[in-house]
Write a protein that binds this DNA or RNA. Sequence first.
DNA 1: CGCCGGTTTGACCCGCGTCAAGTTGGGTGG
DNA 2: CCACCCAACTTGACGCGGGTCAAACCGGCG
Lengths: 257, 257
Amino acid sequence: MENRLDKTAHKILLKRLNLVADIDAEDEAAVLELPVTVREFDAGIDIVSEGQYVSQCCILIDGFTYRYRHTLEGKRQIIAFHVSGDIPDLHSLHMNYMDHSFAATTRSRIGFVSHDAVWDLCIRRPKVAAALWRETLIDGAIFREWIVGLGRLSGHSRTAHLLCEIAMRMRAVGLAPDYVYRLPLTQHELADALGLTVVTVNRVLKDLRLNGVVDRERSRMTIREWKTLARLGEFDPRYLHFRVPITMMAEMPPEGA
Amino acid sequence: MENRLDKTAHKILLKRLNLVADIDAEDEAAVLELPVTVREFDAGIDIVSEGQYVSQCCILIDGFTYRYRHTLEGKRQIIAFHVSGDIPDLHSLHMNYMDHSFAATTRSRIGFVSHDAVWDLCIRRPKVAAALWRETLIDGAIFREWIVGLGRLSGHSRTAHLLCEIAMRMRAVGLAPDYVYRLPLTQHELADALGLTVVTVNRVLKDLRLNGVVDRERSRMTIREWKTLARLGEFDPRYLHFRVPITMMAEMPPEGA
DNA sequence: CGCCGGTTTGACCCGCGTCAAGTTGGGTGG
DNA sequence: CCACCCAACTTGACGCGGGTCAAACCGGCG
C-alpha cells in the first residue's frame, strides 16, 4: 500500500477516458486531482472477492486480470479479461456488493480510488461521469458478445473470437502494435473463459496452429492470419464501440506480420 | 405513433427509478416533464434492429420483449428478456450504434424518449442520471449471470435459473404476486435464450413437470417448488441488486403456492 | 374441415467432456 | 551442474449431454 507521487495511474485513466468519450481540459485537471493509491498484486490472488462490499474502484495500471465466479460444483467461469486502463469494478460505484471476484494472472499494479472521490468527480464533471458510464456500457456490450458466443458458437469459433477480442483491446491501449501480444493465460484459464475444458482448448489451439492461423509459444501469442481468425470467430469489432472508428485492425496487412 | 395524455409511461419509469435508486420529489417532477411518445408493436416484429443508429430510448410499458443477435450461420441467441419498466436500450444513450436487435413476443406498448431529453434530464438531475446508470449496471450483472450459466451449467440448471430470474423480475414489478406468471415465450424462444435446441428445452420442461417442480399450460407458468427450482438453477437473487433487500421471494412459503 | 405454428417423442449422431497417462521445461536445491 | 519437481501442456480412448432429423400430435382459427 504505497502512495505514488508519479501520476502514472492518472495518465492511464485520462488516456482511457479520451479513448471512450470526449472530455475537455477542465475535466482532465479534475481527474488529475483524484486521490489514487497504488498497490501491487501477485499472480493468482484475488484483488476483490465475491461477497465483499467495496467502497473503492480499481484501475488496472499494468498486468493482466480477469473476473470470475464458481458454480456450486466448483466449476469456474471467467466473465471478463482486463488490460491496462480498464476499470474492472467500476460497477461497484453503484452496486457495492460484489457478485463475482476479480483476480490477476500476472503480477499487476492497480490504482484504487474511493467511491466518494469518484462520486464527487462525477457530480462536478458530468462529462467525466458520462465517460465512465460509457465505459461500463462497453463492458456490458462485451458481455453480450460472450453470451452469443457461449450460446451459439462452436469451441473453435469462441476461441478465435476471444483471441481477436483480446488482440484488439490490447491494440487499443498500445499493447499489441502488430499481430503479436503477450497473453499470460494458461490453457486452463482460457478454457474457463470459453466454457470448454483444458483438453478441448488444447486441441483447438493445436488445430489453429497446424492451420497456420495463430501461434503460441509460452505466453507470446502471434496471429498469423487475422482475416481467417476473425472470420472463424465471427469477429466484428463494432461491439467494442471504439470512438476511433473501426479501422484499427481492419487496415492491418491482410496476411502475416 | 400516438401521443398520450395519460402519464402511464412516466409512472412506470418513476416506479422503476425508485426501485433502483433513491430519488427525490424534484427529480420526480423533472421526470414527469419528459416528452414521451407511446407506440404499440405487434408480437414478433423488431422494435429496434441491429445495425441501426438510434437517437431515442425505449421504456417498456407493457408486453414482453427480448434482445437477440444472429450468428453467421443464422442461429439466434437471445441476450435478455424484458418486462414492464425495463429500458432495454438505455445503453444507446452513450453508444447509439445498435449491436443487437430488440423485439416483442407479445403485443407491447413502448414509450420513446429522445436521447436529447434524457441527456438534458441527466445533467439537471444527477440523481436521476445515477439511477439510470445503475439500471444499465443491473442489466450488465444479468449478462454476467447468463455467461456463467451458458459456460458452466447444464441445460436443466440453465432452464431452472431462467425461470427463477423471470419470476423474480416480474415479481419486482408486480407481475407475479404468487408463484404463477404469464410467460409468453415459445419453447423455441426459450431455447434461443438458453443456448439449447427446442427439442432439449421440451425434454427439460417435461422433466421439471414430471418432477412436480414447475407446470406450464400455454403461456401460464406455475412454479410448484420454488426451493427445488432455485437450488437446481443455483439461483441467488443478489446478482439482481434489488434495493429492497433480497427477501422478496426468499420469504415465500417453502413449497406449493 | 383442414391448415399451421407450436409441442412432443423417438432414433441416431457428434462435439466436447472425462479419465488417464505421458511429456516438456523452467525453477530449485544439493 | 545435475537431479528432481511440479505446473502446464499433450495425446489417446471412451462416454454422454445435447444436437439433428423426422414423424406425429394438438389446439386455435379461417
